[in-house]
């Protein structure tokens, strides 16, 4: 599970993440939405241990990302929006390397990779150099490597970018299956359709604050809209922007409630 406890991140004068409290329980598919510069990527980077929070804490499966980094990182998989791959390796060598970094035995790597490789149709590419592969194929390799060690938590930043509709479907299915089996899924995305279709719970960030949190229906009720998530999202972010523009005496932004 994931816990964000009063998380704050400042970049000089700018507050990128402003007192965010959030709990994503085990087995939940959580989608984080927000306009550009809302603080989504910063939150994800803090979760992945790429940067320290200014204050507050982030926990993965009970382990503080800063205080017990190795324990936390053994339980998390992170798929960035622009992943790094060793270009001169083959996909199989890369997958094996990642498995070894997680101290998996050769048998576990082989058995874990077999199903994922088959579902993502990577078999024909396993012996080719990664540098010769298309963006979508590379994205599939990264996802297979990330899911290989059966993490407790997977954090994905825009995971559908570059994937064709077929493999986007495969990824959605795998994430849903794994979530049902107990893996916590945390997706940061601009694709509202992914959140609408997949997420058990949705969070909306705006200017560093978590302005809304709940199921699709709860968000609809909060925004006073009905219909597609797009309408809910636009209404909530516009309301928040309007509140910010009003004089401080009249501003009373609803605080998002954590689980």
């Amino acid at each position: 599970m994931i816990e964000l406890i009063h998380l704050v991140k400042r970049f000089g004068d700018l507050v990128a993440v402003n007192a965010v409290d959030l709990v994503v329980p085990r087995g939940q598919f959580f989608a984080l939405l927000g306009p550009n510069a809302a603080g989504k990527t910063t939150t994800v980077k803090i979760l992945a241990g790429l940067m320290k929070p200014t204050s507050g804490a982030a926990r993965i499966a009970g382990y503080d990302v800063q205080e017990q980094p190795l324990e936390a990182r053994r339980r998390i998989a992170y798929v960035p929006d622009f992943p790094f791959l060793y270009d001169k390796l083959t996909p199989w060598e890369f997958i094996r390397f990642t498995g070894q970094l997680f101290q998996m035995s050769e048998e576990r790597i082989a058995s874990g990779a077999r199903e994922l490789v088959a579902r993502f149709n990577l078999e024909p590419y396993l012996a080719k150099p990664i540098e010769a592969l298309s963006h979508g194929t590379r994205q599939r390799i990264v996802i297979v490597s990330a899911l290989l060690h059966a993490p407790d938590v997977v954090v994905l930043d825009e995971p559908m970018v570059g994937l064709d509709p077929h493999h986007a479907r495969v990824l959605k299915d795998i994430l849903k299956e794994r979530a049902l089996a107990g893996m916590t899924v945390f997706v940061s995305t601009h694709q509202l359709s992914v959140a609408e279709e997949m997420a058990d719970r949705i969070g909306i960030m705006h200017e560093g604050r978590l302005i809304a949190l709940g199921t699709r229906d709860e968000l609809r009720r909060q925004s006073g809209t009905s219909g597609a998530l797009e309408q809910t999202f636009l209404t909530l972010t516009r309301q928040e922007a309007n509140l910010r523009e009003e004089p401080p005496s009249s501003s009373a932004a609803p605080a998002a409630q954590s689980e």
Binding site: M1, R26, R59, A61, G62, R74, E93, Q100, L101, D152
Partner: peptide, 27 residues
């Protein structure tokens, strides 16, 4: 809430794995 969850890691396999530094040098 703070208690670590039990996981499906296989501690026995760790001893046989090369160290991360060795892996990085090799790759």
């Amino acid at each position: 809430m703070n208690r670590p969850m039990s996981t499906n890691r296989a501690p026995a396999s760790r001893a046989a794995s090369p160290s991360p530094l060795t892996l990085l040098v090799r790759v």
